[in-house]
Amino acid sequence: MLSETPAIDIRGLTRVFESRKGFLFREATRTEALRGIDLTVERGAIFGLLGPNGAGKTTLTKILSTLLLPSTGTAMVLGHNVVREADWLRPRMGLVLGGERGLYNRVSGRENLRYFADLYGVPLAERERRIAELISRVDLDWAADRRVEEYSRGMKQKLHIARGILHRPEILFLDEPTIGLDPKSAREIRKLVRSLVADGVTIFLTTHYMFEAEELCPEIAILSKGRIVARDTVAALRQLVGGDRTLEAEAYGFDDREVEALRALPGVSKILSEEFGPALRLTLRVRTGETQPEDVRALLPNHPELSVRERRTSLEDVYLDLVEEEGH
């Protein structure tokens, strides 16, 4: 049975961009956006792909949604090859790249939906009713007949999503659906996304926001510099980075000797350093209960401005650790 195949099955996928700049003196640059991705995503849930800017999230989303060809490797969606079977796949998938672009600004939201309903062959007898339903589902009733150029960013994003699900796709790709939205609009979008899963749609979502992934996605993968550096449930990922406690020490710079001394403390699995304006912050992952904030203070007597705090390791930390390992 076809529905037994995973929603997404990616093997050894790479993508290289060769771009040339300049007109007379062409200068070639080569970017390895994806460097060997293997990933399987089951049907019927929201899968989250996290990663910093330039990690390759959009590139991967576009390849999966047949808008970009891979350089090597294969990607199967719903059991069909995204390169060779794009014609089979396109009517069954939805894509929301989002942002300010991607809509016809001079016509109304409703007309945008009508146009795409026609391109997807939504049955004519159903078209108007389905559009009206979608418009109220995304809360745009009051603005449906206004020109899109008058829409706010959040309204455009809702329209994007309505467009993406107009033809009732089996799988929906959402590239950063809440980027640039205020907290209230972002919450509405997340609610909408969750309601789609209830309809049986598989969702592949990219985001920068850890809490968003935590809230929506049972399973996530972290992409960094074109590689998947972790893929698991949110709970398991928390365990992965060793240490559920985090100590933060802030001062105007530390020397190497001090950092080495901290590293030697019992249970410290990792130290990250980060600049905060004039200050430097050292973040220590601590595996056990052995090392306390006092121990850290004791090792740094020459810093009157020093502050040390303890907190629980968050998914954000997990993410930063993983991305840091990749040299970001």
């Binding site: 576009k62 808008l67 991607g102 016809y104």
Partner: peptide, 9 residues
């Protein structure tokens, strides 16, 4: 407009 991608898709 960025509509070429959804149209091609």
């Amino acid at each position: 407009f960025g509509t070429l991608e959804p149209t091609i898709q």
